[in-house]
């Protein structure tokens, strides 16, 4: 039964990233019922708008981009708190921060898994909600693409807020308070890409600007996130 280090090789960064993502997906799979909450929240919020604002199809079509984007923003925000919660409480976060691999990579994997679980279903379901809001057919590419580009940026920026507040016992709405102002540009460009495509105006420019924000958050946010987590675990 004697086993020795036959292979003292270092796992490649890609292996670490992949293993982290699959691990988080496996955890989510075991808590599948919780995973559906943001999706249900998204559908519910969107369904409430016509009840409050009236069912007039023309009016709804005008409001549709705003409704969809606000609802997507709120559902993303709602699940942010759980991003590092379990890992903080069970000590996994300490293991991550004392890992021999670049911490930036591991936390990026966590955010990626979080996005796959919380935002990707929203993008899929938005197509059906678009129909309920009388969104014209030619606006669907803009809606799906803008959500597809905007939500990862929201996850990345929001993760910083989650990292900053993870150590707090009574957080309340603090996370939403500190993250929401940072979402303003994403909301503006995202909703207006959809809006422009409804009136068949140029919707590629806002989408490109959204892409620029995603690239910027992808390069800077992970480092801010690591700093935030280190501070919280101090």
């Amino acid at each position: 039964m004697v086993r020795t280090s036959a292979s003292a090789r270092k796992p490649s960064p890609w292996t670490v990233f992949r293993v982290s993502v699959t691990r988080d997906l496996a955890v989510a799979w075991r808590h599948l019922h919780e995973g559906t909450h943001p999706l249900l929240f998204f559908i519910l919020t969107v369904s409430l708008f016509p009840l409050a604002a009236g069912p007039d199809p023309v009016f709804l079509r005008q409001l549709a981009p705003g409704i969809l984007w606000i609802a997507a923003l709120l559902s993303t925000l709602l699940v942010l708190d759980s991003l590092f919660r379990t890992e903080y409480e069970d000590g996994t976060l300490e293991q991550i921060l004392t890992s021999a691999h670049p911490v930036v990579l591991i936390v990026l994997a966590k955010v990626a898994a979080h996005w796959i679980l919380s935002a990707l279903p929203l993008v899929a379901v938005s197509v059906f909600l678009g129909m309920m809001l009388n969104l014209p057919a030619h606006a669907y590419p803009a809606m799906v693409l803008s959500l597809l580009v905007g939500t990862p940026a929201m996850s990345l920026i929001g993760a910083i807020g989650a990292g900053l507040t993870v150590g707090l016992r009574r957080r309340g709405l603090l996370l939403a308070l500190i993250v929401m102002p940072l979402y303003v540009p994403i909301l503006i460009f995202g909703a207006h890409a959809v809006q422009s495509s409804i009136v068949q105006a140029n919707w590629v420019s806002p989408l490109l600007l959204l892409g620029a924000i995603l690239v910027l958050s992808l390069t800077l946010a992970p480092f801010a996130l690591v700093a935030a987590l280190k501070t919280s675990l101090h």
Binding site: A8, K10, R23, A26, V27, R30, G91, T92
Partner: peptide, 23 residues
């Protein structure tokens, strides 16, 4: 202890092992 409740010891140790410098 660094163990996720939802995962088995095998899954937990597999993941945490990958966080080590080498296998």
């Amino acid at each position: 202890n660094g163990l996720n409740d939802a995962l088995t010891p095998r899954e937990n140790l597999h993941y945490l092992g990958k966080l080590e410098a080498s296998e």
